[in-house]
């Protein structure tokens, strides 16, 4: 386990650094947007990591409610923490990308922007809820329910652009674009290749952070046990 964590740590960080060099030194500029398009290589991998992180929360919350063992709750909690970091990264990089291209950091009438903010706020509430309850089993149970409900926002975020029928600011999907019933991404190969690798390394960064956080909750438990022993 420790070796795997170490491997993921160095693998993902060096991989992302290499991707950075590739993106800035070897990838040509996009015709329409030029330089601002490069933030896509941070924005899109963060989005996919956010989706994965909260999907893990969804799965482990269900498993917890079924088996009622605290280990599943700890995995869900760790994943939610990492997911919240990636989600804020999505909102911040999206705003920075929006300023030079759309002409604004944020609008309140775009379906994707608002539904993503909702996801962020639900998981802020998730941690407030956890802090507010002292009983471990009750905390885990309520957090699992809120976690499951919160994750239902992900398909809404993903489908919102289609539902708005073009009457929104955010552009539709590039990578899963369907033409003639076939998936046909509308992006040049030289632009999509570094993106694919950024996504792979960002997902391994997520896995590393999840494992690290999960290990830390174990240490936290041990420390709390020691403290309660010495106090008694």
């Amino acid at each position: 386990m420790k070796k795997l964590v170490l491997f993921l740590e160095w693998g993902s960080i060096s991989g992302l650094l290499v991707c950075g060099l590739w993106i800035f030194l070897l990838t040509p500029l996009e015709i329409n947007q030029g330089f601002p398009q490069k933030i896509m290589y941070l924005h899109v991998p963060s989005v996919i990591s956010t989706y994965l992180a909260f999907f893990v929360v969804f799965v482990y919350s269900i498993i917890y409610l079924w088996k009622r063992e605290l280990i599943f709750d700890q995995i869900a909690k760790s994943s939610a923490e990492v997911g919240l970091v990636f989600c804020s990264l999505v909102l911040v990089t999206g705003a920075i990308w929006g300023r030079p291209t759309w002409g604004t950091y944020w609008v309140w009438w775009d379906v994707r922007l608002v539904s993503t903010l909702l996801l962020f706020l639900i998981f802020v509430g998730y941690f407030l809820l956890r802090k507010a309850i002292n009983d471990k089993d009750k905390e885990a149970r309520l957090a699992a329910v809120l976690g499951i409900i919160g994750c239902l926002d992900i398909p809404i975020i993903h489908k919102s652009i289609e539902w708005a029928k073009g009457r929104t600011l955010h552009q539709p999907t590039t990578f899963l674009k369907v033409e003639n019933e076939q998936i046909n991404p509308s992006i040049s190969d030289v632009l999509i290749n570094p993106l694919t690798f950024s996504i792979i390394f960002m997902l391994s960064l997520y896995t590393y952070l999840l494992l690290l956080r999960y290990q830390n909750t174990k240490y936290e438990e041990k420390i709390n046990e020691l403290i309660s022993k010495t106090l008694n």
Binding site: T101, G103, V107, I187, S188
Partner: peptide, 28 residues
């Protein structure tokens, strides 16, 4: 584009001008 503002007779007086961009990314 998306313009925000008020209609003034026949014309539209915009207070904000936003540009939509497509989902296409191409290199030269």
């Amino acid at each position: 584009v998306v313009v925000e503002g008020k209609m003034n007779g026949e014309k539209f007086e915009a207070t904000q001008l936003l540009v939509k961009h497509s989902e296409e990314y191409r290199v030269e």
